[in-house]
Amino acid sequence: MSLLNANDLHQIFGKLDKNGDGLVSLEELNWLLDKIGVKFSLDELEPLVGKASLDFNEFSFFYDSISKQKNSSKEVPAEEEDHDSDLAKAFKVFDLNGDGFISCEELQHVLSSLGLWDENSGRDCRTMIHVYDTNLDGQLDFEEFKNMMFLAIA
């Protein structure tokens, strides 16, 4: 089950499609990954995406298939350390004060800097955090962040 709805995916797609051509290129996708601290070369990214650019339907399908793959995977792949390393880098991007937690304010600040936060959308970052906050402390620790990334983004 995809935790991002079609409107969320359209908004993300629109932000990624910087040149407005209706396609998200590898360069545009790599820009977002770079912003959250996940480093790929274009040569590494292309086999993951499967083509040089994606229209919205392909982008949505790619997101859904990655989400399903992450949700149905019971065994941990051998490259888990690499994933954890990439996720740790991404976590540090969000954990602005370095206290080991992502607060509502930190989440909102980073999403705003990526152009993915709209003050007029009516979204509340506390609600976004609450979905993944398993210990109900009002913030995300690394494990909760990892679950969020595997379920919502990947």
Rank of each mutant, 00 (worst) to 15 (best):
M1P: 00
S2H: 06
S2D: 15
N5K: 07
A6P: 03
H10C: 06
H10P: 00
Q11P: 01
I12V: 12
G14C: 12
G14Y: 07
K15C: 07
K15H: 12
D17W: 04
D17M: 10
K18A: 15
N19S: 10
G22P: 08
G22S: 10
V24G: 09
V24N: 11
V24F: 11
S25N: 08
S25K: 02
E27C: 07
L29Y: 03
N30T: 00
N30H: 00
L33R: 07
L33G: 01
D34Y: 06
D34P: 01
K35I: 00
G37A: 09
V38R: 08
V38S: 12
K39E: 15
S41Q: 02
D43M: 06
D43I: 00
E44R: 00
L48Y: 02
K51Y: 01
A52Q: 13
L54T: 03
D55R: 05
D55A: 07
F56H: 06
N57L: 13
E58C: 07
E58Y: 08
E58D: 12
F59S: 04
F61R: 10
F61S: 13
F61H: 05
F62V: 04
D64R: 10
S65Q: 14
S67V: 15
K68W: 11
K74A: 09
E75Q: 10
E75K: 04
E75S: 09
V76P: 04
E81P: 02
D84N: 15
S85Q: 09
S85E: 15
K89Y: 05
A90I: 03
A90C: 15
D95F: 04
L96H: 02
N97S: 12
N97V: 01
G98Q: 09
G98D: 14
G100V: 05
S103M: 13
C104G: 14
E105A: 14
E106K: 08
E106M: 07
Q108T: 09
L111C: 10
S113M: 11
L114A: 05
G115E: 11
G115K: 08
L116S: 10
L116H: 07
W117N: 12
W117H: 06
W117I: 01
D118L: 06
E119Y: 09
E119F: 09
N120M: 13
S121T: 01
R123V: 05
C125H: 03
R126V: 06
R126P: 01
M128H: 01
M128C: 06
M128L: 15
I129F: 10
H130M: 12
H130K: 09
Y132T: 00
Y132D: 13
D133W: 08
N135S: 09
L136R: 08
E143W: 05
K146W: 06
N147W: 07
A152S: 14
I153P: 04
A154S: 15
